[in-house]
Design a protein around this nucleic acid. Structure first.
Lengths: 217, 217
DNA sequence: GCGAACAAAATCGTTGACAATCTTGTTGGC
DNA sequence: GCCAACAAGATTGTCAACGATTTTGTTCGC
């Protein structure tokens, strides 16, 4: 039996480092130009350099960091153009998921979506854009799960990870939550009506508006 | 200067092993249940085990092989259900690409597509399903390129790699090339007409028919 | 003062050996 | 004969040291 729950090396250590690093990047704790030195990270997280290295390799495959030979890793900056392209892909894939969700959702799952919509309305009414952004993300994730499209879900999670910075920036824009909210409610309504085409249209309309907002930024 | 163009180790060796392995898997030279032993592969391709290991790690990230801890790697078998899911994602993403291609294509690119369509017609007329399958793949790739959607292209290439086995199986089915051909010609026609919505519909119709064929298999 | 060549430091990349783990074959008890 | 426990072999996982490459700081010539 290992002495600690978190060993300093091995597969578990890599997973631990991977998660910590991912969170740090997603929470914006690393400035975009900052160099990620393997030795420093290894010491900081108390794991071996091999674990850090493997984790960075994984993150590079996910598109979260950039690796330059003999120069180290940096968090990758997603330009607005890339963010738009990514959102266009989300439009296509989440449209698929929403259509499936409209067909496959159980009544209990529909209630869940309705509850989420209510919570979102309340967050907007309370003028709490951060909570709203969280709920927003949760709603999208819930719809994906309900669709049961594992392939699409996998792709979407990768895509979303690259957008976090833009997402927060968007949520804090004045007036944005209000518009976003009505679009989301339309999506929920279409799914509750079990109308796959309407659900797909609603999701596309919503993400189209996200693209407009991105471009306007 | 290195003695050989292909060093036995290092980054280039990894790339070399990666490409050889990928080709071998895509060409079906590895039986699905066969174990991929790192030492054997290293000797076979004359590179170090580290290179093979890195290559296998990459292939696992692409979804082409499965890695089981302390048990080695095997080529991943894609079930029909997975193939259907993947094709559904392709439907969404290639629909996006086709719509964009209809808007952005230059006249020269339109001519290219027309030429591809003609070559496909000839392959079907000549009863050559293998050439047809090649051209089919080329057409889809060409449309993706024209769309300029780098994100979508990247996702699609990963998805397609997992479908090679099913694709060949499908192409050899009697009567399949004929139906597929008319659908492809419709796609080309819609793009030439610069009608994005029609192009998206045509692509979706085509891949929908692919899904039906997969399910019937 | 300025640029080029050079030296030193920092950092990543690679290797070969060792450890951990799983599979397979064998033995002993019942 | 059958099952469990055990031992041997095969395979992957991990590490620490070494090597290669890039960057940075310094010196020299002009």
């Amino acid at each position: 039996m290992p002495k600690e729950a978190r060993p300093g090396s091995g597969e578990q250590a890599k997973q631990y480092a991977l998660e910590r690093l991912r969170q740090a990047i997603l929470r914006g704790e690393m400035s975009p130009a900052q160099r990620l030195v393997e030795n420093e990270l290894a010491e900081q997280y108390d794991v071996t350099r091999a674990s850090i290295r493997a984790a960075l390799l994984d993150l590079a495959a996910e598109g979260l960091v950039e690796r330059i030979r003999n120069r180290g890793s940096r968090v990758r900056v997603v330009t607005v153009e890339e963010a738009v392209e990514i959102t266009e892909c989300r439009m296509a894939l989440e449209g698929l998921c929403a259509a499936r969700a409209a067909v496959d959702a159980t009544d209990a799952q529909l209630d869940e979506l309705t509850a989420l919509g209510k919570a979102m309305s309340e967050a907007v009414a309370a003028g709490d854009p951060l909570s709203y952004s969280e709920l927003n993300h949760e709603l999208h994730a819930r719809i994906r799960d309900i669709s049961g499209q594992q392939t699409a879900v996998g792709l979407l999670e990768r895509l979303n990870a690259q957008l976090v910075r833009h997402r927060f920036q968007l949520a804090l824009r004045p007036g944005r939550p209000q518009q976003s909210l009505s679009e989301h409610l339309a999506v929920i309504e279409a799914i509750r009506a079990r109308d796959p085409q309407a659900a797909e249209r609603a999701v596309r309309a919503h993400l189209g508006s996200v693209i407009d907002a991105l471009r306007a930024g």
